[in-house]
Design a protein around this nucleic acid. Structure first.
Lengths: 208, 208
DNA sequence: TACAATCTGTCAGTTGACTGTCATAAGTCA
DNA sequence: TGACTTATGACAGTCAACTGACAGATTGTA
C-alpha cells in the first residue's frame, strides 16, 4: 500500500513519480507557510521547479492536489462494516474496522502532515470535513445493514451522523493534542463509550 | 425579525432593498436551474437587470450572497443552551431551544427555498454544512456548561458533534421528504430519542 | 428649482485558474 | 546509433471573479 517510488520502474516512471512528489511537497510547504488560499499554482510550480503547465499535467486543479491523497485514505467504511460477523455489536464492529484502517494509514508520515495542514487551513478544513463526511453515506448503509434498518430510515441517517460526528471530533482533538500515535485508540474508545451510553445519562467523567 | 421591505423607509432605501432582493431572487433562480457553480455573476446581474459592477456593491462575492442569509439564521445555540434551567436534562434543554429557533425561522418562506438550493448543490451543501457545524463550537460550550465538563474535554466535543450530526441528518431527511412543517418536530424527537438511548441498545424500530 | 449626496452603468484593468499548441529535450527500444 | 514515444517548457489565450475611476442619472433637501 505504501506509495514509495518503485526502484524497479523505468527511469521515466521514476522521474514522473519524483516530479509528482516534488509538486506535492512544494505545495504542502507553501500551504503550511502561507495558507492554501494564498498559494497560487504559479508559486507551487516555481517552488517545485516545474512550469505551471506541468502542474496541470499532474493535477487537474489545486484542489485535486490535496484531494487525491485524501481520497486514497478513504477506503470506505460501509462495505467493511457490512462484512463484520452478524453477532457483533455495531460499535464493536466499527472499532475493529477503524483499527485496521488506522494501522494502514498512520504508517505514512505524509498523512499526518497533510491532516494537520488541512485542519489548520479553513478552506481545506471545510473540504476535508466534507470529504470525511462523504464516508457517512457508506457508514449509513453499513449501519442500516448491520442493524437491519432501511437505508431511508431516519434512524440510519441519525446514527451514521452521530458516529461520523464523534469520529471527526475525536480525530480533531487528537491532532490538536499533538497526534501521538498511541493516544488515538484510547480517545476513540472514550468516544465509543459516549456513543454507546447515549446522552440520557448524566455527564461522562473524563477518563483521560 | 422579518426582513420585509420597510414601507416607511426613504425611496432610496426602498429601492436599494428591492435591488438587493432582486439580485438574491435572480441568483436563487439561476442556482436552482443551473447550479451554483454554473452560474456566473454576469448571469445573475443580467437576470436581476443590474450591471455586474452593481452586484459587487451589494455583495462581496457570489459566496457572500448565499452566506449572508445563512449567517442570519445562525442565532447561536450555545448561549441559549447555557440559559436553560439547571435541572433540565441536556436533551430537553436542546429541544426547547430548537423549538423556539424553528418557529422564528420557518415563517420566512425564503429560508426553506434557500435551504433546498443549498442541499442540492454540492458546493453549497459543503458550505452550508460547514456553516451549520460552526454552530457546533457554541454547542460544545453549551454542552460543557450544562454538563459541568471542561470545554477542552473530549467528551464535550464528542457530544457536541453527535448532536450536531444528528440534527443535520434530521434536517436533511426532512427536506428530502418534502419539508412539511409539522413533520420536523416528530423527526427531531426521533433523533433525540436515539441520542438519548445511545447505540448500545439494539436497533431502534422506526416509529415514523 | 437648485445643489448635494448617493446610486448606477460603462469601461478599462488585474489576477489567477486553466487549456491548446508547438518545439525541444529526454527516455525507450530495435 | 537512429527512429519512436513521451514529458516538459514557452507562449498565447480564455474565462470568470473582482476593483478603480469617472460620468450620468436619481433622490433628498433647502
Amino acid at each position: 500500500m505504501k506509495k514509495v517510488i518503485d526502484a524497479a520502474a523505468s527511469l521515466r516512471e521514476r522521474k514522473k513519480a519524483r516530479t509528482r512528489e516534488a509538486i506535492i511537497d512544494a505545495a504542502l510547504n507553501l500551504f503550511e507557510r502561507n495558507g492554501y488560499d494564498n498559494t497560487t499554482i504559479e508559486d507551487i510550480a516555481a517552488a517545485a521547479e516545474v512550469s505551471p503547465r506541468t502542474f496541470f499535467r499532474y493535477f487537474e486543479s489545486k484542489l485535486d492536489l490535496i484531494m487525491t491523497r485524501t481520497d486514497s485514505h478513504a477506503d470506505d467504511f460501509g462495505p467493511l462494516l457490512a462484512d463484520r460477523p452478524a453477532g457483533e455489536s455495531l460499535l464493536d464492529a466499527l472499532r475493529e474496522v477503524l483499527l485496521s484502517q488506522l494501522d494502514a494509514q498512520l504508517d505514512d508520515p505524509l498523512v499526518l502532515r497533510e491532516f494537520q495542514v488541512m485542519l489548520s487551513t479553513p478552506s481545506l478544513r471545510t473540504m476535508a470535513r466534507e470529504h470525511f463526511y462523504e464516508e457517512e453515506a457508506g457508514l449509513v448503509s453499513g449501519v442500516a445493514a448491520h442493524l437491519g434498518l432501511d437505508e431511508d430510515d431516519l434512524a440510519s441517517h441519525v446514527i451514521g451522523a452521530m458516529i461520523a460526528g464523534a469520529l471527526w471530533a475525536t480525530v480533531n482533538r487528537w491532532v490538536a493534542e499533538g497526534a501521538e500515535r498511541d493516544r488515538i485508540m484510547p480517545m476513540l474508545d472514550e468516544a465509543f463509550s459516549i456513543l454507546a451510553k447515549g446522552l440520557a445519562q448524566p455527564a461522562v467523567p473524563s477518563s483521560g
